[in-house]
Design a protein around this nucleic acid. Structure first.
Lengths: 203, 203
DNA sequence: TAGATTGTTAATCGATTAACAATC
DNA sequence: TAGATTGTTAATCGATTAACAATC
């Protein structure tokens, strides 16, 4: 199990590799991958070395092998089944344009408490949040995206944990509190923008 | 200038502090802030010490002082003026529900190349991307959010840099290449979800 | 062969954690 | 006073960078 820090970098490699493959590369140098993902070639080689991937001197690394290895590590195609809780603007955007999330991720349903948002006939059905427990258990869902307002985020989160959810991607601007065996990644748009201003030094 | 790593933590403190203030706290212990943001009290004290914020033994830190100090550091209210480029699902969600972004951030305009999406009468005007240069220069915009498809992201980015944009929050699943004096933060929904699966160990 | 590239080991750097003195 | 809390210094840990041997 690699750290969060490294998992991020490895997934950057993966998307660069998919792109390079599309461009016709069979083999790539650590230097190329580094340039595409903004790290030095040393880091790339170190990471591959740790993953027990070998390259060939003067030839580079086989693109297909790298992608296969990364997929083994992060899980095969099509096992990323998730639900989206909170069908406001962001939640709606996610459920509407599913391909945004790549063909490897499947949104099985959306949930909301507002009856006007419910739509069982939708390509991705939007159900009432009261049904979340049944749905999660029947479909063996383990990961949820939370896009509810700040005020209800912790309550929604508690319910999801109770249903057996083990991973949460949270867009509500609160840091959710969860038991040790649940993983949460919080993303706050406001904070990210604030940080862009700060690091771009335009304040 | 603190590292990216630390800027994130400091903004977590800020939102916890705003919340605590609303709850009636005038003073808080490092321990409380730590609990709210998922770090140890030692880290909190160390960070405050580095920022030259002093607390009182047995009393804690003054909430208002902390918020003021953090705001000084990250910029005062209302100077976060941005544009959103690409009015697809995510871009539309951002421009529609601006308050999501907190009252400190102001979206001045949206841009797209699709004429059907253009709407100058909107509360947040949606303009043609051809007008971006004029707009950015006239309004002295320094930060942009990019929510265009992968295929056009780098081209859009190049144009923005040419216009004088210094900070970009990018939701397209490519790592944008920019000159050294431009700061980019890439967020890939697909990668974030994949990482949640990985770290939640549900694969 | 010379140059380029991998892959490993050692050195450096930065961030976190631990320890503890100061004192309210 | 004893206990709780701050704030600093030292120790540890992990990640990055540098150095370099191996070899295609």
């Amino acid at each position: 199990m690699v750290s969060r820090h490294i998992s991020k970098r490895l997934l950057n490699y993966r998307s660069a590799l998919v792109q390079l493959k599309k461009m016709g590369f069979d083999y790539v140098f650590s230097k190329t991958i580094g340039e595409e993902t903004g790290v030095s070639s040393d880091v790339v080689r170190k990471d591959f070395s740790n993953m027990e991937i070998r390259g060939k001197r003067k030839v580079g690394y086989k693109v297909d092998d790298l992608i296969t290895k990364l997929d083994e590590m992060f899980g095969k195609t099509c096992c990323f089944e998730i639900i989206v809780v909170g069908i406001g603007n962001i939640g709606k955007a996610l459920t509407k344009y599913e391909n945004y999330l790549s063909d490897r991720i499947k949104i099985k349903a959306g949930f909301d408490i507002n009856p006007s948002r419910i739509n069982v006939d939708n390509k991705i059905p939007i159900l009432h949040f009261d049904e979340v427990e049944t749905f999660v258990k029947e479909n063996d869902i383990k990961v949820a995206v939370v896009t509810v307002p700040e005020i209800s985020a912790q309550l929604v989160c508690n319910k999801l944990v109770e249903c057996g959810i083990k991973g949460i991607l949270n867009f509500a601007p609160v840091m959710l509190k969860v038991p040790d065996d649940v993983f949460v990644k919080n993303i706050s748009f406001a904070d990210e923008i604030t940080r862009v201003f700060y690091h771009a030094k335009v304040n």
